[in-house]
Design a protein around this nucleic acid. Sequence first.
RNA 1: UGGAAGAUAGCUCAAUGGUGGAGCAUUCGGCUGUUAACCGAAGGGUUGGGGGUUCGAGUCCCCCUCUUCCAGCCA
Length: 444
Amino acid sequence: MWVYIEKISEYVEKEVTIKGWLYNIRSAGKLMFPILRDGTGMIQGVVSKKDVTEKVWESFGKLTQESSVIVTGKVSKHPKKENVYELQISDMEIVSISEPYPITPKEHGIDFLADKRHLWIRSPRQAAILRVRNEIIQSIREYMYNNGFILFDTPIFTPNACEGTSTLFSTDYFDLGKAYLSQSGQLYAESGAMALGKVYTLGPTFRAENSMTRRHITEFWMMEPEMAYFDLDDDMNMIEDFLEYVVQRVIKNKRAELEILERDVTKLEKVKKPFPRITYNEAVEILRQKDVPLIKKTANGEEQIRPFPWGEDFGAPHEEAIVENYDKPVMVHRWPAHAKAFYMKRDPENPDIALGVDVLAPEGFGEIIGGSQREDNLDYLLERIKEHELPESEFQWYLDLRRYGSVPHSGFGLGIERLVSWICNLEHIREAIPYARRPNRIRP
RNA sequence: UGGAAGAUAGCUCAAUGGUGGAGCAUUCGGCUGUUAACCGAAGGGUUGGGGGUUCGAGUCCCCCUCUUCCAGCCA
């Protein structure tokens, strides 16, 4: 009977067939120990010369790493290890002998592995990450469904920049001129919230920024909820509830994978409501107390400005300094308005402040969520569009949302790969997606 | 886009300006409980590209290409 390795413990002392690949093989005279993988896990086989035919024995001798095989044998407990199973092999059929496999069970450089990404994903660590990614996305969809959110898929081809800031990828679009690849589905999601109450988008997003860091890819997946009648506090309440659900479900269902990744799960177990909420002003106070300066590039090098001036955006060292006090995600809210996007609503108590929130993951993973309450007043929004020198004509449909039954509403954007990086404790975001797209890499 | 480091066998890395090596992978042989198994043998190289200094350059100098890390932008 064909079974998958992840279910192997249900078949102890039974004869089963596994269809998979040879991960590695060791031999000791009349014994061989092939390690098999089938996509769901790995198991060590035991081949004894006296228990198999001459043909099967010789076939095992021919196997190279990643050769595909169909193996039959009896499942047994490992003689030395608890909760580990082996396959006492009685028969084997070669499906295909692999050519010398480039990814040997030794160390490799990152550029080589990236070139061989189509094979790299077979390795236990990469496969574990992709299983966790699947669990994360499944948890997100489940949370959203269970909480009354409607999946609202937004277009990838768009006629203009959403926020007017990032550089966009462009392509020809028939007789209509240029089309741009979406850098956010938010504006469309806002229209969805006015139609359906609570909606979310989950899909690929594109940024043509030449960002060569461990936290950036040019094509990434973003989840963007948008909720009618939610103010900033409602938004933050949802963020905490949502993040707790996803993290706790992943550590419950994907413990084996997190172990392969050597993830310290106790740190994730602490991700429970409530999360610390600090205003931008309070964050600036922390930076001043810790004497973290603003570093400005000048013609002849760098200049350190202290105390940290109000109104400046935070860089990596500032996020680090703010987050290190906490072992949960930190929500920094109420930002200087001039540094933020045009659609953010101003604080009624202070027009210099925008009702935005950034969520900084613990352990130095930085921003994983950016959100805000949206400007729902037609006149203010028109003013912002003019200030940001955006083409008003392109935003008429968006402005309609304020003309016809405008309501307070809020939402946020979550970077899926950044969430995966944090939960899996990855050194680099390129491992958080099957095929990472970066400014200098589009293959394979 | 700026700063730093780097490019030598299929892979990971050594090599004082003086005959380019090792481990893994591959091929062959040995071993009845191996855990990146081990032991023995073999094959495998235009030292990223171009120019220069030198009796002699993987090594020193210049240019180019590519990669990695850090910073900015952000999710």
